[in-house]
Nucleic acid binder design. Structure first.
Lengths: 197, 197
DNA sequence: ACCTGAACACCGTTCAAGT
DNA sequence: ACCTGAACACCGTTCAAGT
């Protein structure tokens, strides 16, 4: 019964919350359901989280860490900057398609000063992309421009593909015939080659 | 008391919902609050909407129409394709910054078959962008490639900037010093010029 | 057709206790 | 420090009525 001392409950609740999120959408994620599934009274969660928003922020933070891991391992076997960008984007979009509710929680507008570790985790993800762009520039595989601006452009594009894919459940951006990765390489090539003559 | 016959209540509820949304975030938008503010019993809304999701879908639909109007009028005075893309993007991002909760509701994953008029409204917005790209190609101001793919690339980029701007309340993508429009022109120029040497 | 009132099963959050 | 139980004000949704 009381195997939950010393902070175990916090982790258990987060695991349960992630499970519930993958089943049923953010709107039906409740503290009371989490508590019940953890076999604990309905306000035990308040020992570990200030309120519901704090739980969501913790879930979001965990999401950025999971995303970073997936992107990192996707990149690891790619040789050129173009392929690295495609693999990273593919991992990002697939993460969004596999965990749409988690991504929705990740990109809610939180008060950054209230959840510093969340900000940290999300910035770590972005920094990884910054390094990718910078090393591409150093190798001469990307133009030598404002690295920050270029990084943000890639991020915006990939994030747009990811969130639009969630909203339209693949249909709008990713045609059924072609594989997700092939489609994404079209987007990345648009960004690399440019649309102006 | 009963000035609400013949479908007026439906519109009144949507107006009230939009107001509530601009004040307080999606999580605290409730049918009961809407009904109360409309001076009507707490389940009168069920005469006009199947459930809460149907209200949200209607709000989303209205949002796409508002967005289309803003983008259209922003485009109208721009001469080149580049300027039109910048003005359209600027309107899109400013709409998101001014109505973040509305945009959040617009891009939730709805069942398209359940809300056909919502799908229609959102596709109308996208079609307008498609025409912009196509006319740019015809004028030789854009490369002649797959128009669909190019349109989706622009859309993804702009939508990414918009949603990330909401999530990070301007900070992450739009530096405070520079105006939003200037920053957006950097993104668009990245996409036009391309990142590869 | 359009609206009301009572009722049900759920919420988040607080507060006084218990160990 | 960590958890429980009762209580409060709020939800969405349904159903039997009223006009």
């Amino acid at each position: 019964m009381s195997q939950y001392h010393h902070g175990n409950l916090r982790n258990a609740l987060l695991t349960i919350a992630t499970e519930l999120l993958s089943e049923d959408g953010v709107h039906s994620l409740s503290l009371r359901k989490m508590a019940q599934r953890a076999g604990v009274s309905h306000n035990a969660p308040y020992m570990h989280f200030a309120d519901k928003e704090a739980v969501l922020a913790a879930i979001a933070e965990e999401g950025f860490r999971l995303l970073s891991v997936e992107v990192e391992s996707a990149i690891s076997h790619a040789n050129t900057t173009r392929l690295r960008l495609i693999e990273a984007s593919n991992a990002y979009v697939n993460f969004a398609l596999n965990h749409p509710n988690h991504v929705q929680v990740m990109f809610c507008p939180y008060d950054a000063e209230k959840y510093p570790s969340l900000l940290e985790a999300s910035q770590a993800s972005l920094n990884r992309l910054f390094e990718l762009v910078k090393s591409g520039q150093e190798k001469g595989e990307l133009i030598s421009g404002d690295t920050q601006a270029m990084t943000k452009s890639v991020w915006a594009m990939v994030h747009g593909v990811a969130t639009l894919s969630i909203a339209y459940k693949t249909r709008a951006l990713l045609p059924e015939k072609i594989s997700t990765k092939e489609t994404i390489s079209v987007f990345i090539d648009c960004l690399l080659t440019g649309l102006a003559p």
